[in-house]
Write a protein that binds this DNA or RNA. Sequence first.
DNA 1: TTATAAAGAACAATCGATTGCATTAAAATA
DNA 2: TATTTTAATGCAATCGATTGTTCTTTATAA
Lengths: 342, 342
Amino acid sequence: MKNQKRTTIYDIARKLNLNASSVSRALSNTSKVSEATKKLILDTAKEMNYQPNSLASNLRRGSNRTIGVIVPRINQNFFANVIAGLEEITYEHGYNLVICQSNESYEREMECVNTLINQQVNCIVISVTAEFQDDEHIRNILKHGIQLIQFDRVADNVDTLKVLNDNRQSSIEAISHLIEQGYKRIALLEGPQNLNIFRQRKEGYLEALKMHGFDIVPELMRENAWTQELSAAATRELLSLPNPPDAIFASTSDFSALGVLEVATKMGISVPDQLGICGYSNEAFTEITSPSITTIDQHSVDMGKAIAKLYFKEARSEAEVSVPRIINIQPQLIIRDSTLRN
Amino acid sequence: MKNQKRTTIYDIARKLNLNASSVSRALSNTSKVSEATKKLILDTAKEMNYQPNSLASNLRRGSNRTIGVIVPRINQNFFANVIAGLEEITYEHGYNLVICQSNESYEREMECVNTLINQQVNCIVISVTAEFQDDEHIRNILKHGIQLIQFDRVADNVDTLKVLNDNRQSSIEAISHLIEQGYKRIALLEGPQNLNIFRQRKEGYLEALKMHGFDIVPELMRENAWTQELSAAATRELLSLPNPPDAIFASTSDFSALGVLEVATKMGISVPDQLGICGYSNEAFTEITSPSITTIDQHSVDMGKAIAKLYFKEARSEAEVSVPRIINIQPQLIIRDSTLRN
DNA sequence: TTATAAAGAACAATCGATTGCATTAAAATA
DNA sequence: TATTTTAATGCAATCGATTGTTCTTTATAA
């Protein structure tokens, strides 16, 4: 069973007393083959259980119709959704996805990049790790003539196609909403500042405060609070301040927001009356908590689709038509009970 | 930039006045090449930014060190976790993952299988769709000499490597737990019975009732309640019965359990006192609902790892050592407030 | 010094599909 | 009927790495 040879176009050709080139042409339906022989070939192909060997045609064509994806974690909601969206569109175009996870390790990310370059993928789609340091490996992708699309977490300095959320804008909206609801001392839980997304969310926070004439209070801004535990710890500190915040923007994730909510509940601080909470990502559970959590939807599946569409548009155009280099997916503030005082 | 040719082993050979075969041997570090020339080759390879072309070596070797994965939905928690586990192990072995989603469509699943066969993947890992009908396409994988590992949702009649949860056992445990808590009329929300997993969960339910001398009440068993909405609808019916259930086993998923909880809450029925609820899958949110939901953890990441390990063990052994054909991952009942009356 | 062995490198075939060019056969035109 | 056009098929090179075999060097033994 294991050792039986695959049928090749040569096998079919031999059986029909034809040349392999005709078989190839018939199967790919390109140029001239008579209807009669084409039918003959297709029939015997089916009969012999022929499956084209894409390894061979990949080599010949110099392309394998594959898009490589590198994300920190496949099973993180946001990334899983982006991948699902990507797959949907690439599948329609007969492309495949090769998926790697960097596990938030910079070294691992470099290895993944090399693997995908060797594989000759047509395009690499990447969201960099939180350990992001140097963009040499990213540039190396371009050096090898491979299309590159960065999304969400990107190396700002590398000029490539990018699909982004407008994190700054969404943060401005979130903070403005909190201010409208009458919150006066709004704290920020930050993520690692080497990542563009967390920098932008912080910018939005600062900008919104400024817009509304609020003071910026350094003690209300907490660095590296980007897991549930770290956020819980930061929240305990914040709420123990002599002059504690009356709202917390957990800009890193909904898990952070959850950490905030848990601590508040434990300390007997009522949400949203005494403390407003806003998360980020619109995880499924934010709808279910009590109170439900205000958050920001990133339209992650759409983001995946946008990435794929961008690739195919760019690939077709071959720099003839000008394709926008950066696509912004508008995130959406989802207002729920955790920030509704009225 | 786009048109610059990749450096090949021939380029390196030409530059050093050597033959390509020597370059190949030096790079792959097999058999005899003198230390001096090897160093020379490796250095110039690096200097010329050489990246091996795996398309070529794949064709030659007839293998691409790739495992194809077909799941109904990539962004469904369970599958995302399995894939993450898979990736972790396959990566260690220098293998890649090609991922497809069938979107619960039987036709799409067949197409995915064909694509992966064409790609000459070394192994196909699959969990079949709920539309599962015929196992011809599954058998076709074996006909092409490709290793096949089915997991979770499997075609029972095809004899392949399988990695499964013991759904029957976990259901028995869940029902036994409900009975211990004093629940007397336990309802079942079923999934599509063409899928093995849902059949087994039903079997477990029936078996447990029998073990404890309970009657089987057909009106308490609801077919095809496998989305949140369908479960909510079924629950409304169940709770409106003249003799309603005092517990519901949402055997299809935690989302179903959530649907049950919502309806119960809306109807003013207290959980767990008047109604016990048990879900399936241990989704993140089950810990957060109020009350938190009793459920069954499938150890999905471990399952992914087990699949990969099974492949590599089997591949190495080449039928010399006998490798177990079926691996059972023990699921675990997670008891939470929704079933704790005491 | 000659014979032998072993190491190192070159040669050439191979994997299977694709494709430009050449050839043949058939159809259309003169 | 002779000639041109076109359609259909065959031929052969190619993609780049791998690997069994052969040929040259050296180093070692006789």
